[in-house]
């Protein structure tokens, strides 16, 4: 037996959650040819078919683009730290964290969350991330198609992978979905909302395997200085869109919004593709050119992170290649390494 929910039932569930004050995010058509995960104002904004995947990722729900870490008041030479200026910030340890629901995430987005858990919790615990993560329920829609830039199967995932999801939806082809609850959060969300059925949903078979991550790891470990990186970086414009649209890229900066912005310290997304990322105060820069920055991104994903945390820092979503103005990304670099 299986549990199913109709598409209208799913939209009603979303409407109920929005009405209850939950921040609900999901794929939505922002403009022609652009689908993004965004906060849904209405269940009708939820886009469920006709696209491969959104051009951004769900990491924004647990790791916002910019986030206030704390505020401060300056009075003469006295400083007072404050909990923050905005109402939705988490700088006050006791402030309630708004509940979040991500609906129709892709498996390659959901899988990024348990991977990110490592970095935000080894040794020092990052409560900004952890509190948002605990307040978030992820409902994943198994893929019914894949695009030319998709490569989840090369990094150990697939279109029906459950990792990081609280519940999975599978299309039944008749306007309804099979629901498979994975965690208590998922079960609580769908409790009483589904019907029993004998229908079983299916997912896309996924892209063929395009490269072996172990081959990529061996190459980057042994080719720190190599003309390969220069060739790949020739057309890179250093815009950082690869990192910003990546579900697992998590590098950040800490900056002050000064007096004109109300005095607060923020963390903001950053990218290893920017020259300032590693520039020393002396003017020296260990990664002075784009080739070394391209190398760093592959090295981090296939060697550094796996060495430290046992997992590749990539879920095969293909966003870096898909969004790059020059078509460079993990897929193109890793494929070229593997096909050497």
């Amino acid at each position: 037996m299986s549990e199913i929910i109709s598409q209208s039932g799913l939209r009603q569930l979303v409407a109920d959650r929005i009405a209850a004050g939950t921040i609900v995010s999901g794929p939505t058509q922002v403009k022609p040819k652009l689908v993004l995960y965004a906060v849904l104002g209405s269940p009708d904004d939820l886009l469920l078919e006709g696209f491969v995947r959104p051009d951004n990722s769900i990491k924004e729900c647990v790791f916002p683009k910019q986030e206030e870490l704390y505020g401060y008041r300056i009075q003469g030479n006295n400083i007072e730290l404050t909990d923050g200026l905005t109402n939705d910030d988490l700088t006050n340890d006791d402030a309630p964290v708004p509940k979040q629901l991500v609906v129709a995430a892709r498996p390659c987005d959901a899988a990024a969350l348990p991977i990110l858990d490592h970095i935000f919790n080894w040794d020092f615990k990052d409560e900004f991330y952890n509190r948002r993560r605990a307040a978030t329920t992820v409902v994943t829609l198994a893929c019914d198609s894949h695009g030319e830039n998709c490569f989840c199967t090369s990094v150990g995932l697939h279109p029906a992978a459950e990792r990081g999801s609280d519940a999975m939806l599978f299309e039944l082809g008749d306007g309804s979905y099979e629901v498979r609850c994975i965690t208590d959060k998922g079960r609580a969300l769908f409790d009483g909302k589904t019907e029993e059925s004998d229908k079983v949903g299916r997912a896309d078979a996924g892209p063929e395997k395009k490269f072996d991550p172990e081959t990529v790891r061996a190459f980057v470990d042994q080719h720190f200085e190599d003309p390969f990186w220069s060739q790949h970086a020739l057309t890179c414009v250093g815009c950082g869109v690869c990192a910003f649209t990546c579900p697992t890229c998590h590098c950040f900066d800490i900056v002050d919004a000064g007096p004109s912005a109300g005095n607060a310290r923020y963390r903001t997304w950053d990218s290893c593709q920017f020259p300032m990322f590693t520039a020393h105060a002396s003017g020296h820069n260990p990664r002075a050119g784009q080739p070394s920055r391209q190398r760093q991104r592959i090295l981090h994903k296939f060697s550094i992170y796996p060495n430290k945390f046992g997992e590749i820092l990539c879920t095969g979503c293909g966003n870096c290649t898909r969004n790059c103005p020059e078509g460079i990304g993990v897929l193109t670099v890793a494929t070229e390494i593997d096909h050497g």
């Binding site: 020092f124 998590h250 290893c272």
Partner: peptide, 24 residues
């Protein structure tokens, strides 16, 4: 080693030399 750092606690991703996070 005095690589540029932001967080100082092994998260912000910039100070590594190979697998070594200089801040940690």
């Amino acid at each position: 080693i005095e690589n540029r750092m932001k967080c100082g606690i092994g998260k912000c991703g910039r100070c590594n030399v190979g697998p070594i996070y200089i801040c940690k």
